[in-house]
Design a protein around this nucleic acid. Structure first.
Length: 266
DNA sequence: CTAAAATCCTGGTGGC
DNA sequence: TGCCACCAGGATTTTA
């Protein structure tokens, strides 16, 4: 599942092949994945050049020369790659963008959860998002302030992109392990020292994962990252905790799995 | 306002 | 071997 480190890795890889190049067409294989419609994409996208590519949370944002923004969310199983137009296609290619230089940007997504937006006003998509955990100016004090009037359990809260962006099920579990906090703890019961530890843990886990070019899982399209080798708790049910040897537990929390060490996390 | 459940999707898996 | 129920989860929508 592409989370912040995977999207960041993909963004960095797309800059060289895309920036300065111009879209010449688009083919949509699954209508529900684009907004606006495929018809409108075909009318508006051709002729627009990619001027910059950024990441905001788990969204990939391409600034285009025609004042539009092409915004893509990979959700669970999406992946993007640039290939020559005559390279063999893939069964799960859902949206294929033609470029004037003879290449294609291909959005592959077996589960069809991904989304493609074209808009001249990205605010309606991006404005609700919480702070970027790795920004230099995202301070410990700002993180502490996020807990105002928050009473739900900490794990679902970390997954809420309006609270803070970038964490998905993997890195939320890993950050909570590093901070020594149980996923089912109520947010308003965390001590200030625990919140400070969680702030550091989130930034450490995400930065290390970016350094490893993200995580590659067997049932997902995204490949190349190595962070799965660093998992301390995620997908390690009944395996020994790397700190104390206790069996890692897996529970369900907010319709998601949560992994933790019952001894090291309180 | 916040919290939590339901929803969208398909490929892989385990049980029989 | 085939069939089928079930599981994985990011973000939006619905419900409380």
């Amino acid at each position: 599942m592409p989370e912040l480190p995977e999207v960041e890795t993909i963004v960095r890889g797309l800059r060289a092949p895309l920036i300065g190049h111009t879209f010449s067409g688009v083919r949509v294989e699954w209508e529900r994945m684009t907004q606006p419609s495929a018809r409108e994409l075909r009318a508006r996208l051709p002729g627009q050049r990619v001027e910059a590519i950024h990441r905001r949370g788990k969204y990939l944002v391409m600034q285009l020369s025609g004042k539009d923004n092409l915004i893509i969310h990979l959700k669970m199983t999406g992946d993007l790659e640039v290939l020559p137009a005559d390279a063999p296609g893939h069964q799960h290619d859902r949206v294929v963008f033609d470029l004037e230089n003879g290449n294609q940007l291909r959005f592959r997504d077996p589960r069809k959860f991904g989304r493609v937006y074209l808009t001249d006003d990205p605010a309606w998509i991006l404005d609700r998002l919480g702070p970027e955990p790795l920004d230099d100016d995202f301070t410990e004090g700002e993180f502490l302030a996020l807990f105002d009037r928050r009473s739900g359990r900490i794990k679902p809260l970390l997954l809420n992109q309006e609270f803070i962006v970038g964490l998905g099920n993997i890195y939320a579990d890993e950050a909570l392990f590093l901070a020594g906090v149980r996923p089912e703890r109520k947010a308003d019961t965390l001590l200030e020292a625990e919140k400070r530890g969680l702030y550091r843990a989130i930034r450490q886990v995400l930065q290390l994962a970016i350094d490893q070019k993200g995580t590659s899982l067997a049932d997902e399209t995204y490949r190349g990252g190595q962070y799965q080798r660093q998992f301390k708790v995620y997908d390690r049910r009944e395996e020994p905790c790397p700190k104390c040897g206790s069996p890692i537990q897996r529970i369900r929390l907010g319709q998601r799995s949560a992994h933790f060490c019952p001894n090291c996390q309180r």
